[in-house]
Design a protein around this nucleic acid. Structure first.
Length: 483
RNA sequence: GUGACUAUCGUUCAAUGGUAGGACAAUGGUUUGUGGUACCAUGAAUCAGGGUUCGAUUCCCUGUAGUCACCCCA
């Protein structure tokens, strides 16, 4: 769970001296290098880039639970998986997400390739998926076209807990239907996913921003209002007024909240169709048992949204809210990218934050299957045999652990015990010669010798009877046993 | 991008302007063919680079990274 906190610089030799080869620990390599500077060296920083991290084995059970829930929801709701490249022409994002948005202006990983193309690491999924939709002529498919994707996205931002430069999103998109029932279903799907992940205190924030025109008009009206009341705003908001007036609505300062309560609302500036759309969406939402609130202050940071926008929030005891994801309708995007006019709606879920919330609220991670059998070997002959036995067991779908590198039987049994296996198979010199194996029941401590051809069946039999006894208690000798 | 705080074995917590210590974890052992506990042993760290100093892990500067607030968002 914990990542390396600080830089470690290690000098790596291009040609290792025999002394260095013997040294297993990397740190001692460093020391030896320092005393042997004549060898050509190259300095590398053994550190992940800022805002990027390794997801270590310890954390994988959480990710596995997330993957499974997503895969389940994807199938239940009829989405097909699509994977698009991490890298696209930078233009795709500037045109869809929009210049003027922070994502494009400040946070994109953007660079030139050797061939001279201006490209960017995807800061979100929808643009790439929309590109693929057009490129592969998916508009001829039966509507709605439902696509699911999952993977890393990149934003060059200051990292914090739950905020990384490389982070993971799951993305659901539906193309080709403008009916508000799809909006409702999208939110329902999002809810289903977070619910399956065991998250409580979920709330949806829903709003409609209408068309690009009505949005523009609203923004003008808002600025007009705020300008006239500028003296009542906090310092920050006065600055926001010039850069991003909509954000004033998000301010946490009391006086700003009071003032903006009287500010014009985006809903009042909706065109007739958008208003009807929103009204019907709310009707559908009321049909569902969804925790949602209309949030007229909700504005999203991407240009392509039209009509419905929403966010998924998770709250803690102290009343802090964390945004886990969000989405909305983007009826104009496909056309603006050069495809034929296609309404669409989708949402993205921030998986890193979902997992953070799972940990915070102590949701149980997915439990990976544990080996129930351990294979111990003693001596060269047994070692050779054990490789084959391991393979036989694996082919019979028996998960078996081993520690081939270890010498003594004691240390191997110790490992077996620590793993909590039910059976340990022991092959020593004698058994290797006799073509037999010792099958030791780790729960009772008893053991029997069977011939190797019968080994798999013998193991299966014990496992089966153990399973019938209910949950397995891994053997633990407590102090009470002795006293 | 701005500001603040932080940085010690794999993890966690100590200590010091004078050769960094414990706990947990790891590895080996306590009649070399049998597990737990206990006991013993072993390996393992001052983020990097400069400066001040007789001497820096400690003080100063820079860099890097993390955390927090802002910005923004997932």
């Amino acid at each position: 769970m914990t990542q390396k906190k600080s830089a470690k610089k290690v000098e790596v030799k291009k040609e290792k001296s025999p002394a260095a080869k013997k040294s297993v620990a990397k740190k001692s390599v460093v020391k030896k290098n320092l005393s042997a500077p004549e060898v050509s060296q190259e300095e590398i920083l053994l550190q992940a880039l800022r805002g990027m991290r390794d997801i270590l084995p310890d954390e994988q059970p959480y990710w596995e639970r997330v993957r499974r829930a997503l895969s389940h929801a994807q199938q239940e709701y009829g989405f097909q998986r699509i994977d698009t490249p991490l890298v696209e022409f930078a233009h795709l994002f500037t045109r869809s997400v929009g210049t003027g948005t922070d994502i494009v202006d400040k946070e994109m990983y953007i660079f030139n390739t050797r061939g001279g193309d201006r490209v960017a690491l995807r800061p979100e999924f929808t643009a790439g998926i929309a590109r693929a939709f057009i490129q592969h002529g998916m508009s001829v498919l039966s509507k709605p076209v439902k696509l699911f994707s999952m993977g890393p996205v990149y934003r060059y931002d200051r990292p914090q807990e739950g905020r990384y430069r490389e982070f993971y999103q799951a993305n659901f998109d539906m193309f080709g239907e403008s009916d508000p029932i799809l909006d409702a279903q999208t939110i329902q799907l999002a809810y289903r996913v977070v619910q399956q992940l065991g998250l409580k205190n979920i709330e949806f924030q829903v709003n409609s921003i209408g068309t690009a025109e009505s949005r523009k008009e609203y923004s003008k009206a808002l600025v007009r209002f705020l300008e006239s009341q500028k003296h009542k705003l906090c310092q920050n908001c006065r600055e926001r007024l010039a850069t991003n007036p909509m954000r004033v609505l998000d301010c946490k300062e009391d006086k700003c909240i009071q003032l903006t309560a009287q500010a014009p609302q985006s809903l009042d500036y909706l065109d007739q169709e958008s208003r009807e759309h929103f009204k019907r969406l709310l009707e559908y939402l009321d049909e569902l048992d969804l925790p949602y609130a209309i949030n007229t202050r909700l504005v999203r940071g991407l240009d392509y949204y039209t009509k419905t926008v929403f966010e998924i929030w998770s709250g803690d005891q102290e009343g802090k809210k964390y945004s886990l994801g969000g989405g909305g309708r983007y009826d104009g995007l496909i056309e603006s990218l050069g495809g034929e006019a296609t309404p669409a709606i989708g949402f993205g879920l921030g998986l890193d934050r979902v997992i953070l919330e799972m940990k915070r609220t102590q949701v149980k991670p997915y439990e990976l299957p544990k080996p129930r059998v351990f294979l111990a070997q003693l001596g060269d002959m047994a070692k050779k045999k054990s490789l084959r036995i391991f393979s036989d067991l694996e082919k019979s779908s028996i998960l078996v652990a081993e520690s081939f590198g270890r010498g003594s039987l004691k240390s191997q049994l110790r490992v077996a015990n620590r793993l909590g296996v039910e059976i340990t198979i022991i092959i020593g010199q004698k058994e290797a010669l006799d073509e037999t194996a010792i099958v030791k029941d780790m729960i009772s401590g008893t053991q029997e010798t069977v011939t190797q051809p019968k080994l798999v069946d013998a193991v299966k039999k014990i496992l089966k009877s153990n399973a019938a006894l209910g949950p397995v208690m891994p053997i633990v000798h407590t102090d009470d046993d002795e006293e």
